[in-house]
Design a protein around this nucleic acid. Sequence first.
DNA 1: CGACATCTTGAGAGACCTCAATGATGGTGG
DNA 2: CCACCATCATTGAGGTCTCTCAAGATGTCG
Lengths: 249, 249
Amino acid sequence: MTAAAAPANRSNAPASWPACSACRAGASGVYAPLHRTTQDNISAVRTEFVSVRANALISRAGETPACVHTLRRGWAMQVAHLSDGRRQILHFFVPGDLLNVEALLLGERAQDASIRALTEADLCSFPVESARTLFDASPAQRESLLDYTRAYIAGLSRRLADIGQRSAQGRMAQLLLELWERLRARALVTDDSFEMPVRQEHLADALGMTPVHVNRTLGALRAAGIIGFDRKTMHVLDGARLRKVAEDE
Amino acid sequence: MTAAAAPANRSNAPASWPACSACRAGASGVYAPLHRTTQDNISAVRTEFVSVRANALISRAGETPACVHTLRRGWAMQVAHLSDGRRQILHFFVPGDLLNVEALLLGERAQDASIRALTEADLCSFPVESARTLFDASPAQRESLLDYTRAYIAGLSRRLADIGQRSAQGRMAQLLLELWERLRARALVTDDSFEMPVRQEHLADALGMTPVHVNRTLGALRAAGIIGFDRKTMHVLDGARLRKVAEDE
DNA sequence: CGACATCTTGAGAGACCTCAATGATGGTGG
DNA sequence: CCACCATCATTGAGGTCTCTCAAGATGTCG
């Protein structure tokens, strides 16, 4: 079930959809160049605005994605599944991210990973074809897309090196720093703290460890006074030491 | 030092370089469509044929690659480095692979990983610009490039899931199967065995484990009668059970 | 033959996992 | 409003996997 096929809630009147001009994804995401110059064109090709529930499947592995989505609210994750049910979270998407961007570059090829909502989330959908046309219109925009793709590949490579080479604390610190940076770029960090609607179970599947050990790892960082957290908020108390842990362990 | 800048051996006379028509990379690699129809064009843009020694640096992280290379003989690896010297091998290249293909797609961006020869190797070099022109000439060829890129990303994702979720035996089995498949596609497998000029230390850096444990893992697979190997040759004795280990562990 | 790289093996330590129980938190229905 | 429930976080104890350190064996090359 894709979001486009069976939205939990749908506004049928495009007029009632939230304005693209107010979109954080537009202002600071992959298509910022486009957003600055031709906002109307963006609105024109938006075919859907949906809210999905936590855990909703947004894009299914093995299918060719029909739409690119803007994640306007909530978090999502990209997941690879092993045949026996184990799963690896490849990437966390935060508000303002674009989902399925690879489809613009790679054409109508099947995805080998799913995208699933982590929380309740709002999505805007753009058919791949129209989005590609839009992106091709401006050289700056094309550049931005290629940069995004390069960064995506670099992110995968870095995560691979992290999981392959670093200890639990190092991996955790790397992930927290990455999220911290990305959320700060979206103005979602205040007072060195940010909402992190991710269960420890998700961190475990992203970092290649068990939920129990995620808990102990976070506990150690908290005991050291490096981070503070509760169920929903992560607080970076000592960025310098967090960076040191991320580098050294 | 890139291969182009300081080759170990260089044939100055293009006429003496091995013919593109006899190139395994051409016949079965990314640019097979091109190779079938316009071989002369390929030869025309080849700017270099070099042999490099084992361990030679072919493409340096942080620089923007000037050339795409065909690996005509020998093995190579793509490596990401951590600040403290630990390294993660992201990919093994086998004879017939193309190196730096991402440069065609992503433009003149800096690589974040190096490419290094694993063995003595022969390379043909093609400037990125000419290669891109060639590739853009045919739709089939463009498709092939996109397929290659998608497969590259899929490979990274799969390795990430392997290292994150599987045990040492599972990872090892996955890697052996992958190499087996890829080498078979190049007709480099005979009698279920193939040359594997890779030190156990390299397997360790690729799979996120220590050389000692690589040894014990291989030993266990050998003791189980699943594989046989010596310093240079890997023999798959029981493909079915190897696949089972790869899936289950 | 020596020098060197690589493989192999052992023994002990540490990191991480499994199983299992207890606490928190937030939502829901009575 | 409270009792109940599901979900998630936390903690303990013991086991397993993988690592570290170290020694010896094997192969390779000049």
